[in-house]
Amino acid sequence: MNIFGTTISHLERGLDFSAMKGKTISQNIANNETPNYKAKNVSFKEVFANVKGNSLEAYRTDERHVAFKTNSKHMGVFDYSNLRYRHNGNGVDMDKEQADLAANQIYYNAVVDRLNGKFNTLQNVIKGGR
């Protein structure tokens, strides 16, 4: 029996996603002047769009659910191999990267705020409402 529910583990996964996205955006910004560097992005929606056949595995609550599995270590990280913004082949759009960085920071702060709320509720329960 899980006394804390699944909310904290879901919020943890949200923080993991935000960290992976932040690292990818930082790599793109750091390689802004690198010739032939292709910008990368983190998107779980693209994982499901690019999956072929039985390459993902998920927890199934019913045998009628579709089975799928994957061995991907960096699930969700994609590069834009056919994208070029400059004559040197670099595919980093700094305006887009800065907007993505700001959006990711807002998402991260929202998840941390929700996690703090959960911990404050637990602390309040442990103290007996005092």
Rank of each mutant, 00 (worst) to 15 (best):
N90I: 06
N50F: 05
R60T: 05
F48Q: 08
F48W: 04
A49Y: 11
N36T: 14
V66A: 13
N36V: 11
H65Y: 07
V112A: 10
H74G: 11
N71K: 10
K118W: 01
G117T: 13
L83P: 01
A110E: 04
G89A: 05
Q123C: 07
F48K: 10
R84V: 15
V112F: 02
K52D: 09
F44H: 06
N109C: 09
T121C: 04
E97K: 01
T121F: 08
N120H: 12
T70E: 12
T70I: 12
H87C: 08
A67D: 05
H65N: 11
N54G: 12
Q123N: 13
Y80Q: 13
N71R: 14
F44V: 10
H87W: 15
S81I: 15
T70S: 14
H74K: 15
R64Q: 08
T34V: 05
K38D: 04
G117D: 07
V66N: 06
R84T: 12
T70M: 07
A58I: 15
V112L: 13
F68T: 15
I106H: 04
G89C: 09
K45M: 09
R60F: 13
Y85A: 08
M94T: 06
F68A: 12
F68Y: 15
D100H: 01
V51G: 00
N116P: 05
K69P: 03
Y37R: 05
K40L: 05
N120P: 04
F119W: 07
D95C: 10
N50V: 10
K40D: 04
A102P: 01
N41G: 06
Q105R: 13
N71A: 14
V92S: 01
L83N: 06
V112I: 11
N124R: 13
F78S: 05
G117M: 07
F44P: 09
R64V: 07
K38N: 04
L122Y: 02
V42W: 00
K38I: 08
E33D: 14
N109E: 07
Y80P: 01
K118A: 12
Y108V: 13
N124V: 09
P35E: 00
D100L: 00
K38S: 03
N124W: 06
N41K: 15
L83K: 07
E46Q: 14
Q98H: 11
G76S: 08
L101F: 09
